[in-house]
Computed example of a mutant assay.
Amino acid sequence: MTRFDIPAPDAAAHAAALERLDALVKPVGALGRLEELAAWLCAASGQVPPPPIERPRVVVFAGDHGVSRLSAYPREVTAAMVRVFLAGKSGVNVLAREVGAGVRVLDIAVDDDLSDVPAEVRAWKVRRGSGSIEAEDALEPGEAARAFEAGRRVADAEVDDGADLLIPGDMGIGNTAVAAALVAAALGVPAEEVVGTGTGVDEAGRARKVAVVRAAVERAGERVSDPFELLTALGSACAAATAGFLVQGAVRGVPVVLDGVFSAAAAVVAAEIAPEAVRWWLAGHRSTEPSQAVALKALGLTPIVDLGLRLGEGSGAVQAIPTLRAARAIIADMGLLADLG
């Protein structure tokens, strides 16, 4: 397996940040999680105070899944939503504009030729759709590695273009079932503990999802001990691309803010591929899907905001940007106790 040269966050900057935070015009620790995040940003940037977050970027990885029949929405919604992203009308488009974040959508595995969308969107395609994981592998041999490398390349492209914070987004009907299967298999958790209602299925629909996820994990067997085999058997090209994006963000020393259940599941797999990458990730928000909570606990990450969101697309992580900017502001702009008259 490839070894990745991932820098360590700056421990000296982190220590200096904690010292400064304790010296600000407030009781020690009075700003709670904002202080923790401020110190984290200092360590990531290697300076106190950290630079402003000026060019956050969301990359939405779009693709279809063979288990889409379990969703409350038809598979065709994925391709339609790619066009909505391009028109700037999706939920994440609207929310990202409010915080000055750019949004890019990529066709990784949409089950449509999307011939009417720009070639730069279609150029990243690994395959159309994926296998129905309870009965067959999601991907063909080698496709997980190809998708992973695609995710790394797009992270490089965004950082080279000036991105100072990366957010992985997702679009694909059926993706919560795939995420649940990845988390269940990677962490050895029973299907019933990680399967949620996804797009809004009823209890009968959730029971069907539990059965599918359980069957998929049983079918994959011992292959789940290898992260690329896990992605091949139970994941998707989008999950593999997201994992590559997360790892390469860390390689480049750029903070990555995870979104909801899908990026958290990809992060669990990415952490198996490159364990040091976790130090560059934050959890943007708490999803209503139970598998996200299981994944974040395993990763040691605590969500920044909790708004009851379950849209995906990167929309929840975008909501963390104002909080991160507030964390930076306190360490950059607050006065010191020593300066009081």
Score class of each variant (00 low, 15 high):
residue 299 L to D: 00
residue 283 A to F: 07
residue 337 L to F: 02
residue 305 V to C: 12
residue 83 R to E: 00
residue 220 A to P: 15
residue 156 D to T: 13
residue 170 D to Y: 05
residue 243 A to M: 13
residue 101 A to G: 08
residue 104 R to D: 11
residue 79 A to C: 10
residue 125 K to Y: 04
residue 31 L to Y: 12
residue 310 R to A: 08
residue 86 L to I: 02
residue 319 Q to N: 06
residue 166 L to D: 01
residue 30 A to N: 08
residue 171 M to A: 06
residue 197 T to W: 11
residue 327 A to V: 03
residue 96 A to D: 00
residue 224 V to W: 00
residue 130 S to D: 06
residue 20 R to I: 03
residue 47 Q to S: 07
residue 65 H to C: 03
residue 296 L to P: 01
residue 131 G to D: 05
residue 258 L to F: 09
residue 288 T to D: 08
residue 16 A to W: 14
residue 219 R to G: 13
residue 242 T to G: 10
residue 93 N to F: 08
residue 19 E to H: 08
residue 38 A to M: 05
residue 340 L to T: 02
residue 130 S to A: 14
residue 20 R to N: 10
residue 235 G to S: 15
residue 37 L to I: 03
residue 200 G to A: 11
residue 258 L to Q: 02
residue 244 G to W: 09
residue 99 V to I: 12
residue 335 G to P: 09
residue 31 L to N: 12
residue 190 P to S: 06
residue 130 S to N: 09
residue 105 V to P: 05
residue 211 A to E: 07
residue 62 A to G: 02
residue 283 A to V: 12
residue 56 P to R: 03
residue 109 A to H: 14
residue 253 G to D: 14
residue 226 D to N: 05
residue 33 R to M: 07
residue 253 G to I: 15
residue 205 G to P: 07
residue 190 P to F: 02
residue 296 L to I: 01
residue 221 G to M: 03
residue 96 A to M: 04
residue 100 G to Q: 10
residue 181 A to E: 03
residue 118 P to D: 00
residue 193 E to L: 11
residue 124 W to T: 15
residue 116 D to L: 09
residue 162 G to V: 13
residue 339 D to N: 06
residue 298 A to C: 02
residue 316 G to S: 07
residue 154 V to K: 15
residue 205 G to D: 04
residue 9 P to M: 02
residue 168 P to M: 15
residue 169 G to I: 09
residue 22 D to P: 11
residue 123 A to C: 08
residue 55 R to C: 10
residue 17 A to W: 14
residue 136 E to A: 14
residue 50 P to R: 06
residue 108 I to R: 07
residue 287 S to F: 14
residue 190 P to R: 14
residue 222 E to V: 05
residue 252 R to V: 15
residue 35 E to Q: 14
residue 329 A to H: 06
residue 216 A to N: 11
residue 117 V to W: 01
residue 38 A to G: 10
residue 32 G to I: 11
residue 256 V to C: 12
residue 278 V to M: 13
residue 155 A to E: 06
residue 255 P to G: 11
residue 247 V to R: 12
residue 298 A to G: 03
residue 115 S to V: 09
residue 332 A to T: 10
residue 106 L to M: 06
residue 162 G to W: 06
residue 284 G to I: 07
residue 309 L to N: 08
residue 30 A to H: 12
residue 15 A to S: 14
residue 152 R to G: 13
residue 31 L to G: 04
residue 49 P to T: 02
residue 62 A to E: 01
residue 229 E to I: 01
residue 284 G to H: 07
residue 221 G to R: 07
residue 249 G to N: 15
residue 198 G to P: 15
residue 156 D to M: 13
residue 318 V to W: 04
residue 155 A to M: 00
residue 10 D to C: 02
residue 76 E to T: 14
residue 245 F to N: 11
residue 107 D to T: 13
residue 204 A to R: 09
residue 110 V to H: 07
residue 330 I to M: 01
residue 87 A to P: 01
